[in-house]
């Protein structure tokens, strides 16, 4: 590598040529860029500060519990979350309700089971092993009840949404480890119900949203201030609700995030020390060759 680098720097002419070529490529492509996410989609969401971002990010338990409350009382009347099981509510790294609390939540829902010995399906109270029941029996029924739009499933939604970061932001994100575009977008969307600008008409049955691609969203503003009663004194604003439910959605989409970052740190420390030892070992081993 050193040899390569030294051979590179020995030739200023070549450097100039490469620089010119690179600059040419960038100017050509950047200058002529006609299309952008902004033109096709909504306004770029603002980057929020999430407790689960960064190398030591962790979910805020209280926030996840509040977010679950918002999901349960508001969102879940239209949105499913079919990969979320009641037992998940009590597992480490999540909202960490007690197992008793999770059981109570489960028993509050009727789950279809069967067939019984007579061949009939029947409803019974939910158990920890059951998954979150969907509000509609199928996609067609969901569309029929929601003006033709299908309320997306929450299971992986927070990882399924993003916005374009552009150059050089997408390179900087590698180093800052910023991966929270999905939560940014969802938070922005929930706060993006504003009056349409002058001259913009919204189609019948749709609503104007500043952050939704195309701006015409079928979902009406889903939540308003004081709609959900928090017991811990957290402000009951739309902004707070949307932050909480977004954090909850991120956990539903990535339930092992905390374990991932924790193990990641251990692995990093290990690898760096190991690389250091290997470096000195390599130097020792090669010393004989280099000395002569």
């Amino acid at each position: 590598m050193n040899k390569l680098m030294s051979s590179l720097s020995s030739l200023p002419l070549r450097r100039g040529l490469i620089g010119a070529a690179l600059a040419g490529v960038l100017v050509l492509a950047g200058g002529l860029a006609p299309a952008s996410a902004q033109e096709h989609g909504g306004t770029k969401p603002h980057r929020e500060s999430w407790s689960f971002a960064g190398p030591f990010g962790k979910y805020d338990r209280a926030q996840l519990q509040r977010g679950f409350q918002v999901f349960k009382e508001v969102c879940s009347s239209c949105h499913s979350a079919h990969l979320l099981a009641f037992r998940n509510l009590a597992q480490p790294g999540g909202p960490q309700f007690s197992e008793e609390q999770a059981k109570v939540v489960a028993e509050g829902y009727q789950i279809q089971d069967g067939p019984n010995d007579a061949g009939d399906m029947f409803d019974r109270p939910g158990r920890l092993s059951d998954h979150w029941p969907s509000p509609f029996p199928n996609e067609q029924a969901a569309r029929a009840s929601n003006g033709g739009a299908y309320p997306p499933d929450f299971s992986t939604l927070a990882k399924a949404r993003t916005y374009e970061v552009g150059f050089p932001g997408f390179l900087i994100d590698i180093f800052t480890q910023y991966q929270e575009q999905g939560p940014d977008y969802i938070h922005a969307l929930l706060n993006g119900y504003v009056d349409p600008p002058e001259g913009v008409t919204v189609p019948e049955g749709a609503h104007y949203n500043a952050y939704f691609p195309g701006h015409a969203i079928k979902m009406p503003q889903p939540i308003s201030a004081d709609q959900v009663t928090y017991t811990d004194g957290t402000p009951q604003t739309v902004d707070q609700y949307s932050r909480d439910v977004t954090a909850f959605m991120m956990w539903v989409a990535e339930p092992h995030l905390e374990a991932r970052k924790r193990i990641g740190f251990q692995v990093m420390i290990f690898l760096i020390i190991f690389a250091g030892l290997l470096y000195f070992t390599k130097k020792k081993v090669w010393k004989a060759v280099h000395d002569h």
Binding site: F270, L271, I273, F274, L277, L278, F280, T281, K284
Partner: peptide, 12 residues
């Protein structure tokens, strides 16, 4: 040094 490196590799 060699033993430490080897042990580290084995642990990893």
């Amino acid at each position: 040094l060699y033993i430490a490196t080897g042990a580290m590799g084995a642990v990893g």
